[in-house]
Design a binder for these strands. Structure first.
Lengths: 196, 196
DNA sequence: TCTTTAAGTAAGTAATCACTTACATGCGCC
DNA sequence: GGCGCATGTAAGTGATTACTTACTTAAAGA
């Protein structure tokens, strides 16, 4: 037999580059030519890895979720073995959207008529929500605090806080200082966790 | 002198149709041909009213802000002469995004590299924020309540709440019932206003 | 009635872009 | 070595789309 296929490996190698391109440029302006250029390959190579441009975008959405959760887990368990929501809030207040990944969602939100894109986004938001809610429940049970807002609603509101923070950052309609306060104070208020 | 120009009038007549098209289809899929079709005119008519497609979109953004504020004021002063934030929250929990206008923002958020679009969105968010903060300050001063979160941060968080609610609605990742609770309970918690 | 110009019609155009096709190259096992 | 297939290059193509141009119609004041 001849050479073994490296397609799966190449997909994994190029996905971060593709995801970043979608985040920076949006679905429309991230042309296949531009994606190929950034990846250092020709267009048809990309079409050997994914069926079409939409498949590239859907893969990028998933990548954003995976890498964000990865970073959060890393941050939250840095000081101790236990996950700390406060540490995540602290981290996000400093670095929110640093990788620009969140912007990939905005471009999808204007393509919701496509069922595949809608489902991919819905699943992603639900996964984020489930993750945050779980951490909320955990941190509330250990601290004994009981938020005034139930953890599910609080988790949604926290996602909303992150979203508007990103929007404010990207549009420049809120100072970096104000944005940090928003994430930190707003986040703690919503999470209902005790001050550190 | 021959006929008097009706251009300004026609702009006002067609703007709601144009705005709705952008909201429903997004910037990209709302082609000039489709815009003209919905308006019942030919494309070059639109180009006599606006310089280019971007100008149509920018006008639509402004229209969304104006009409939203208009509806809010109507709702909030329906029962009494005084503006009531609680009534707006109640209204939004029922009708949020009913006109689909909010989606016009998402498409702009993936075009932030364009300075005109970025500035238009930034100004819009700041105007919304200023409006909500003002109402918060007013309702807190009359009720005597003092929120734990300062009114500026609370206003941003409320916008975030509205944004994530719309996203949840459009993607279908939260039930209508859950969404209503989110707006109502989350909104009241953030506003720090007394229960009715 | 005649002139002027706003308002509308119809067709076209240059550019862009997702996606394809045809072909060259070289790795790795027989 | 030589065969088979993964990998790469280069060019093209049909469809879409923002925007234009050339022309017709008709309103209204002189």
């Amino acid at each position: 037999m001849p050479r073994v296929s490296r397609i799966e490996q190449q997909r994994q190698d190029l996905l971060p580059i593709v995801a970043r391109a979608f985040s920076e440029l949006g679905l429309h302006r991230a042309t296949t030519a531009e994606l190929a250029r950034r990846c250092g390959v020709r267009e048809n190579i990309l079409y050997r890895l994914w069926d079409d441009k939409k498949a590239m975008y859907l893969a990028a959405i998933r990548y954003v979720y995976d890498s964000t959760i990865h970073i959060w887990l890393q941050q939250a368990t840095k000081k101790s073995d236990e996950f700390s929501l406060a540490d995540v809030l602290e981290y996000e207040s400093q670095h929110l959207g640093e990788f620009g990944h969140y912007r990939i969602l905005f471009t999808g939100l204007s393509e919701l008529d496509d069922p595949d894109i809608r489902h991919a986004l819905a699943r992603m938001y639900q996964d984020f929500h489930a993750f945050i809610k779980r951490q909320l429940d955990q941190s509330r049970s250990t601290s004994g605090a009981k938020g005034e807002l139930n953890s599910s609603l609080a988790a949604w509101a926290l996602i909303g806080l992150g979203t508007i923070s990103t929007i404010a950052r990207e549009t420049g309609c809120l100072s970096p200082r104000g944005r940090r306060r928003l994430i930190k104070e707003g986040g703690r208020y919503l999470a209902g966790v005790a001050e550190k």
